[in-house]
Design a binder for these strands. Structure first.
Lengths: 148, 148
DNA sequence: TAATGTTTAATTGTGCGCAATTAAAAAGTC
DNA sequence: GACTTTTTAATTGCGCACAATTAAACATTA
């Protein structure tokens, strides 16, 4: 009875899944950022929010969610923590009181200078050429657009 | 003062990061599994545990962690939930009392039959050929081995 | 064998991620 | 203009992920 043969279904083997390396690599890359972001006192998703704010200065929660593919259940508490650290501001859009507009405070703006070295430092840890990285990024982005 | 020019640093733009499509695509793929796994009453990481158990029947928490790149802080509560649902068993290894051995219970074994259709169903949602999927998987696995 | 070091899980605490619900504002429709 | 529908955030609850700590079992070495 404890000898029931195990059906070796290749479709159900971890090594044959596309999902697993995607899942695992994503976490490993996040971990590669961690020590660098710790110096900025930011988590990885918080860092992504700042990438957008440094580029656009102001964005609504909705716009952040559209760009990061995250909903308000994730963003609202994250943004409140950044507000509490005086890095960003949160205010209702007077023209549409449903929207909450996120803006950079001086301390949040100043983080950009210290963040400049992060991409290079992380890149150095992944042993791949620029061309390889860009090719993979385009590949992943293509898939992403098909799904989102 | 609110006119401080924003330095457009391409290295700090979300669209130029490799990390973001990896992070976002991983979550999207997990979401693609969700409705299928819901019928098995499993979460995505729980499903990964079962892929390994269906293949190996018994594995220690350590072995599961090595294969999934997860630590006991993640696995212990997850496994306790599966134990509570009578899907798996947890017992100390009599030969090394530090190890906890995870085994399949009948209900957990029977889940395999219902799971057989999951990989095909998920694959259908990603508009890519087998060859493309395999190429990408190998690429991601190579990167993963470099990091782990 | 006694002391030291290593391995393995468990625990604790924090921060996502997301489904589901609620509530308010805005837009569309009759 | 009242009614309905849609949009937008916030809230609640649950399950990961993971860093840091603890404790027990095992291994190594003096």
């Amino acid at each position: 009875m404890s000898n029931t043969p195990i059906v070796a279904n290749p479709l159900l083997q971890l090594d044959n899944q596309l999902c697993f390396p995607l899942y695992a690599l994503s976490r490993m890359v996040t971990k590669a950022y961690q020590p660098l972001l710790q110096e900025l006192d930011l988590t990885y998703p918080q860092y992504l929010v700042f990438l957008l704010l440094w580029e656009h200065r102001e964005l609504s929660v909705k716009e952040l969610g559209d760009k990061l593919l995250l909903d308000s259940g994730t963003l609202t508490p994250l943004l409140k923590r950044l507000e509490q650290k005086q890095l960003i501001s949160r205010r209702r859009d007077p023209r549409d009181e449903r929207s909450v507009i996120i803006g950079l405070l001086p301390a949040g703006q100043e983080l950009q200078v210290r963040a400049c070295q992060v991409p290079e430092a992380v890149f150095a840890r992944l042993n791949m050429t620029r061309a390889e990285a860009e090719a993979l990024r385009n590949q992943l982005n293509t898939l992403l657009k098909q799904l989102a």
